[in-house]
Design a protein around this nucleic acid. Sequence first.
DNA 1: AAACCATATACCTATTAAGGAATATAGTTC
DNA 2: GAACTATATTCCTTAATAGGTATATGGTTT
Lengths: 122, 122
Amino acid sequence: MKLVKIYECLCDETRLRLLNVLAQGPLCVCHFQAVLREPQVKISKHLAYLKQRGLVTCEREGNWMVYALPAKPPRELAANLACLQDCAGENPVFRRDLARLRKLAPKLSATGPSCCATVKTR
Amino acid sequence: MKLVKIYECLCDETRLRLLNVLAQGPLCVCHFQAVLREPQVKISKHLAYLKQRGLVTCEREGNWMVYALPAKPPRELAANLACLQDCAGENPVFRRDLARLRKLAPKLSATGPSCCATVKTR
DNA sequence: AAACCATATACCTATTAAGGAATATAGTTC
DNA sequence: GAACTATATTCCTTAATAGGTATATGGTTT
C-alpha cells in the first residue's frame, strides 16, 4: 500500500473521524450518521473513498452496510492508524464522537458487529 | 497544530521525500535538488508549502536557504514524523534519496548545518 | 409487486493543489 | 554598481476533491 495514498485518505477531517470511530469496531452507515451528525451523502461518499483505497472493508447485512477496518492491514496502514489513535485522544471532536458512540453502545450487540442489523435480530 | 493540516502536508510524494531527507538534518535547496533530482521550482514550492504550515523552519545563510525540521515539534507532528520514518525505510525511493544524501555527506560539514554555505566556509 | 428502508451514485459548483515557464528577489562577489 | 548565484514568486493550465441536491440501487416487508 502506497504511503501517499494513506495520507490522502487521512487529510480530510470527516475521514479521520470515521477512522477514529471505526477503531472501536465495525459500524453501519446510519450509526456513523448518528455519531458524526453529518448527512448521509457525506458519510457514504467518504466511506466509498476509503474503501476504494483499501482503508476500510464493508459487508452487507440486509439493508445495512457494515464498515470495518481491514482485518490484517499492511504495516504502513497499521502504523498510521495507531499514530492516529495516539493523536486523536486530545482532540475534542474525536472525543465527542466516541462519547456519542458509547451512548449508542448499549443498544448494540456486545458480540456481533455493532450495527443496526445486530440490534434488530436480538 | 491541526492533525488534518499535517496530513495535507504528507499527502504528496515530493513533500514526503523532503521530510524524509530532513530527518537526517538541515539542508539547503540546492542539495535537495541534487538528492531528489527534481527541478528547483518544484522543491522550492513544496518547501514553502511545508513552511507555511509549520512543518519546517528555514534560515538564510548567505545565498542559501537552509531548511530544517522544527526544533520542538508539537506532539502530533513528532508522532507522525516518527511514523513516517518507521514506514519510509521500506520504500525504494526514500532509500535512494538517503543514499544520494550520504554520497553528498562527505562534502558536508559534520558539525554545522549540512549545507553549501558550510561547505564553502570550511 | 408495491411500498419502504438504508445506502450509493450522478451531476453540479467551488476550491485547492500540482507542475512548468518565465521572472523577480536577496544576497554575494568582483 | 554590475554581474552572478541561489531561491522565491507569478501566471498559467490541468486535475482532484469536497459538498450539496436529486435520483438510483439493492434488499426487505407486507
